[in-house]
Simulated assay, not measured.
Amino acid sequence: MADPAVSVLKRAVELDEASRFQESLVCYQEGIALLLQVLKVTKDERKKAHYRDKITHYMNRAEDIKEYLKKEKEDGKYHKQIKIEENTKGFSYEKLFQEYLSETVTEVWVEDPYIRHVHQLYNFLRFCEMLVKGRCKVKRIHLLTSHDEGNGRTQQINSLEEIRQSLEDFGVTLDVSYSSSIHDREIRFNNGWTIKIGRGLDYFKKPQGRFCLGYCDFDLRPCHETTVDIFHIKHTKKT
């Protein structure tokens, strides 16, 4: 029964040693909860004492990490990083963004130079659908992207115009701007959260076929390797 707890806590230690403290804290908390369940059903007193010692040790380390992260926030160094490994699943837009889309969000800025090709336009459409369906009250979306340099420019402009008109039906205004010098990818919400994804919204792999799992549900779609960096302006000191 202790095997799942051991596995999770082993992962917590690995993340801790790699200085991935936010992720390690989650694993420590999950592993401690599993170990507490094991402790409840254990009859052998020596094993119970062993589990108590382990729980105390991991709880102390988890508290140390909490204090460290708290100080980072107070010092204006708040930074959460998520590493999406190659071919992993479970990173739909809902899973990635919903934690930061509170009811106070009314305005969103998307800066991504690659909202050009058909699949990238569909990615942006799915992102807009998530905003409309979520608990946030988005009224305006700003998109800054770059023009398609090939024959797809007309399709790009027409597709974004169609998305704009569709959003109007839901009471949302879409402002589209183009820049030939944009390179960075960034998404900002007016509640202070900023999310930077190495590959922008285009981090999903092409599905194997139209009738394969993951074609519609992006939680089941394999991902390209990328890094997600999350900041909050409340915790970022300006120079």
Rank of each mutant, 00 (worst) to 15 (best):
I197F: 04
G31C: 11
L131A: 09
E67Y: 06
F21G: 00
R164T: 03
K237P: 00
H57L: 13
V138G: 10
I141Y: 06
E99Q: 13
F189N: 06
H57N: 11
S24H: 07
Y51F: 15
I230W: 07
Y203G: 00
K89S: 04
Q165R: 15
Y28S: 07
L9D: 07
L35F: 03
F91S: 04
D219H: 03
S179N: 11
K237C: 03
K83H: 12
E161A: 11
L96E: 00
E94D: 11
L167I: 10
Y51A: 06
Y68N: 09
S92Q: 05
T104W: 01
S179G: 05
S24D: 08
V172Y: 06
Y28L: 07
K238V: 14
E161N: 14
P222M: 10
T106P: 00
I163L: 15
Y100S: 03
L34M: 13
I65H: 04
Y68Q: 12
A18M: 12
D75I: 01
A12R: 01
G209M: 02
K70Q: 14
I163H: 05
K89F: 02
R52C: 06
P222F: 06
R135H: 08
N191W: 08
S180D: 15
L144K: 10
F124S: 00
F97P: 05
N191L: 10
R199G: 04
N60E: 14
V105P: 02
E168S: 12
M1Y: 08
I82L: 14
M1A: 12
I82F: 01
E129Q: 14
V8A: 04
N151C: 01
R46N: 09
Q156G: 00
R221T: 10
E67A: 12
R199F: 05
H79N: 06
R135S: 15
T106I: 02
K89D: 01
A2D: 09
Q155L: 14
D16W: 04
F124I: 13
K196L: 12
R61G: 03
I230P: 06
M59C: 08
E23R: 07
E72Q: 00
V172P: 00
L143D: 02
L121Y: 02
I65P: 00
K83A: 09
G31Y: 06
Y122S: 11
C212I: 08
L9H: 07
R135N: 13
R135F: 04
K66Q: 13
D75Y: 02
I233N: 09
I157E: 15
L220Y: 07
I187H: 03
L131M: 08
F127V: 09
F211P: 00
D16H: 14
T154W: 02
H79T: 04
C216P: 00
I82M: 05
E14H: 05
E129C: 08
E161K: 13
K237M: 06
K237Q: 09
E17C: 02
K83E: 13
E86P: 00
T236S: 13
K89A: 04
R188I: 10
A18S: 15
T173S: 12
F211R: 05
V132L: 07
K73Y: 01
L131C: 07
